[in-house]
């Protein structure tokens, strides 16, 4: 009986020491997941078809990105960081996350009517940049503008979808430092958004 109790005690102690909260969390500090599971909308061959919003709409959307810049759905390539609004796009003269401040965001903040949502696409940031990001979010929220700061890779589709919903949305985007781990080439990745429809 003594040995049994000893084993039981040991097991309880071990389970307590390895409690989930005490374990280091996976991806701690990385706030964004790149892969989302949308469930299965696909019904079968011939029953479903996809509608690509980039091709359907007559307004501006971003189709792809590279280390050089962005390509719109009308085939125009934009060099460098961009400030994109519904149906108009401007060149944005910033280098990276640390260049984004109240002055460089002046147009987004001063615009009338107020923006429904502002998206900031940032190429790459380290763990130590989290304070900067938080400060930036707080700064923009002072102007009562909802803000979404995310990696560029997912900021584009977000802008496209929000724009497809006819919201007054703006996005400031800086091209990524590397696409698929390659820093020098300008490899294009598709940013087309759409939805799947049943027949």
């Amino acid at each position: 009986m003594g040995t049994l109790r000893y084993c039981f005690n040991a097991a309880v102690a071990l389970s307590k020491s390895c409690h989930r909260s005490s374990l280091p969390r996976k991806n701690f500090g990385q706030r964004f997941n790149f892969v989302r599971n949308y469930g299965s909308t696909y019904e079968g061959d011939g029953k479903t078809h996809a509608v690509l919003l980039n091709d359907e709409t007559d307004s501006l959307m971003i189709s792809s990105y590279s280390t050089v810049g962005f390509t719109l759905n009308n085939g125009i390539t934009l060099v460098g960081p961009i400030a994109i609004f519904p149906n108009c796009v401007l060149s944005w003269n910033v280098g990276d996350l640390h260049h984004i401040n109240e002055e460089s965001l002046s147009l987004f903040l001063k615009i009338e009517p107020k923006l429904d949502i502002l998206i900031l696409g940032i190429p790459e940031y380290k763990k130590r940049d989290r304070k900067v990001l938080l400060g930036l979010a707080n700064l923009i929220r002072e102007y009562k503008i909802p803000v979404e700061i995310m990696p560029v890779e997912i900021a584009g589709p977000t802008f496209n979808f929000l724009h497809a919903e006819r919201r007054f949305v703006a996005a400031g985007m800086i091209p990524p430092i590397d696409v698929d781990g390659d820093s020098a080439t300008a490899m294009e990745s598709p940013w087309k958004v759409g939805y799947v429809e049943g027949k």
Binding site: L78, A83, L90, E103, K110
Partner: peptide
Amino acid sequence: NLVDYFKVYTLVENTV
């Protein structure tokens, strides 16, 4: 600030 940080694009054909 506006003039410093935002610029209107000019179209260049195929130069890129």
